[in-house]
């Protein structure tokens, strides 16, 4: 009971902080009126904290950790050869496919880790938390999409990859809009998005092209390695029949009588 209380304390605290931050931003009667630029960064930090907390409390094997790290490293490295081409980066495509095949938690972790780690080499900036959120969410939503609509989402993956190019750009615009522009209304956000329209379009087209060229084979390879994370062992039952013990990384052990 006490351990459960401790486990729930951190997310509750983070959710409370999130509520307080949002209320201080929206209420004009708050004692300290914080700038939305700072508030939005704090809100993103709390959201990232909640998602990391979810990863921390999950049961995870060394194979999964290694696989996530390798995929995040590939996604991060993929940014470098395309650094000179504006907005064309295979990272988004790699993260989406990883999330689709390995699940939402792994997808988020690969996206967020790729953003943070690659910026250690390409330069950290105020964009880092937003990139972590943008790529993390791409992996997370791709994983959820597969969980809830497996067939339809597979067919719609090129559209998702294309659309995420724009969503990622809008998410990145959000901070500069909140921190440096006044007044905060739809016209000013429209101008901020219009300024990055061609970059976002290139990103979206790049994602769709990467998916159409490499996507199916990439999914096949990852599926094969994803299956290797699962170990199924047939144990002869003491009395009649057999017991099928299945070890699926991160999901514990389930035993079915055959």
């Amino acid at each position: 009971m006490r351990a459960a209380g401790k486990r729930i304390l951190l997310p509750l605290g983070l959710l409370l902080t999130l509520g307080l931050l949002l209320s201080s931003g929206l209420s004009s009667e708050s004692p300290i009126q914080l700038d939305w630029g700072l508030l939005s960064l704090m809100i993103i930090a709390v959201l990232l904290g909640l998602l990391y907390w979810d990863f921390e409390r999950s049961a995870i094997s060394s194979r999964e950790v290694a696989l996530m790290a390798v995929l995040a490293a590939i996604a991060a490295v993929a940014r470098v050869p395309f650094a000179l081409l504006p907005s064309i980066q295979p990272t988004t495509f790699i993260v989406i496919i990883s999330g689709f095949v390995l699940g939402p938690r792994a997808g988020f972790m690969i996206g967020a880790a790729a953003a943070l780690a690659s910026n250690f080499f390409l330069g950290q900036g105020p964009w880092t938390p937003w990139q972590m959120m943008g790529w993390g969410l791409a992996g997370l939503l791709a994983g959820w999409g597969k969980l809830f609509f497996p067939r339809a989402f597979l067919k719609g993956l090129p559209i998702f990859c294309f659309g995420w190019g724009y969503i990622f750009g809008w998410l990145m615009n959000l901070w500069s809009w909140l921190a440096f522009i006044y007044p905060l209304n739809w016209q000013s956000f429209l101008v901020a998005c219009a300024a990055s329209f061609w970059f976002d379009t290139l990103h979206a087209l790049g994602n769709a092209a990467f998916y159409l060229l490499f996507g199916p084979t990439f999914i096949k390879i990852l599926n094969r390695y994803g299956r290797r994370l699962k170990v199924e062992e047939i144990v002869p039952a003491a009395a009649g029949g057999a017991v099928n013990c299945s070890f699926e990384a991160g999901k514990g052990r389930s035993i079915k009588k055959q």
């Binding site: 990863f55 950790v65 490293a73 780690a117």
Partner: peptide
């Protein structure tokens, strides 16, 4: 604060130059 997440991030920073 978050041992497992830090481990994944450390591995990625180690693997980045290696993969490159």
């Amino acid at each position: 604060l978050a041992g497992r997440s830090a481990l994944v991030l450390s591995l990625v920073t180690r693997l980045f130059p290696y993969v490159f």
